[in-house]
Simulated assay, not measured.
Amino acid sequence: MILNGLLKTKFKGFSGDFSLVIGQLRSSAFEIINVINKKEKVIGYWTLENGLIRKLGKAKKGKSMSKYELKPPIWPGNTKDIPRGWRTPDGGNKLRIGVPDKTGFEAYLKVEQDPYTKESTVTGFSYDVFEEALALLPFAVPNKLIPFPIGPNAGTYNKLLYHVKNQKFDAAVGDITILANRSQYVDFTLPYLQSDVSMDIWLTTGAAFVCTGLVVWILEHRINNEFRSSAHQQ
């Protein structure tokens, strides 16, 4: 009688609900631990009544097993980005990506620096291609964009690629032309801009100049004596 009474005893104490299941004390809540290197961090709890929950003592309706009920965990590589596959970064170092900081052709690549935080923001077609390539990988690749000045009184594209060779940068992203001498010390991705695009632009520009000159000659030939000389003199 006494044993049966003890097994059926239930009450709420300072540490939570007290009850016995098959003679064993049932834990009222389990901690969800996020292990970071040699440290641990509690990101939530699991209870029989509520499932996953961020804080104890916070009543909610229904039982949830959604991960969004927990605090965001820190993944290997010291990042909050969720790995997209079984492989995850095994170190805290980020890839150093050299980015040409220059003027002109901003549609391809543009680097802007915040005057207060000194952080750089990169936009443009070349950067979008880089982001899409990373999105296709089955794992997260933490990276840091490092602007590299390009100009008459600054560096050149060749120097930028030499820094990749010398391992000052792990890679370079930008409107970098694939040349034979550069291919001897760095590896390029497959080209995503065809050279015939620029050739079409040059042909169109040349045709526009020829048409403009022809129209001017036709209009001025009748009234301007300088346009009535021989073809050799014109």
Rank of each mutant, 00 (worst) to 15 (best):
T9R: 09
T103L: 12
P73F: 09
R96S: 11
A231C: 02
F130H: 02
P142N: 07
T117C: 05
G62C: 11
R26Y: 04
K41M: 09
G151D: 02
L48I: 02
D200G: 12
K12G: 02
K58T: 14
A133V: 04
A29C: 07
N181E: 15
L219K: 09
Y185R: 01
N4L: 08
N166Y: 13
F139T: 10
I82F: 05
G77W: 07
L193E: 12
A207F: 05
I2T: 12
A59Y: 10
R228K: 15
T156E: 04
L179H: 08
I22E: 15
F148V: 03
P115Q: 11
P115V: 13
Y162I: 09
C211A: 15
P83N: 06
R96W: 05
E132T: 08
R96E: 11
W217K: 05
F125P: 00
P83L: 05
S120I: 04
K71H: 05
I33E: 04
F18L: 11
I74M: 08
S120K: 02
E40F: 06
V35A: 07
R54W: 03
P89N: 03
T189C: 11
S183K: 15
G51D: 03
T189H: 05
R182F: 14
I223A: 06
I22T: 10
A140H: 01
E106V: 11
V99A: 01
D114A: 12
P72A: 05
H221K: 07
G13E: 07
E119D: 12
G124A: 12
T117W: 04
E119S: 10
F139G: 00
A207H: 08
W75F: 15
D114L: 13
I32S: 06
P152M: 03
F169M: 12
F209K: 11
V99M: 05
T47Y: 06
R26S: 11
L95Y: 07
L25F: 12
T103C: 08
A140M: 01
A29R: 06
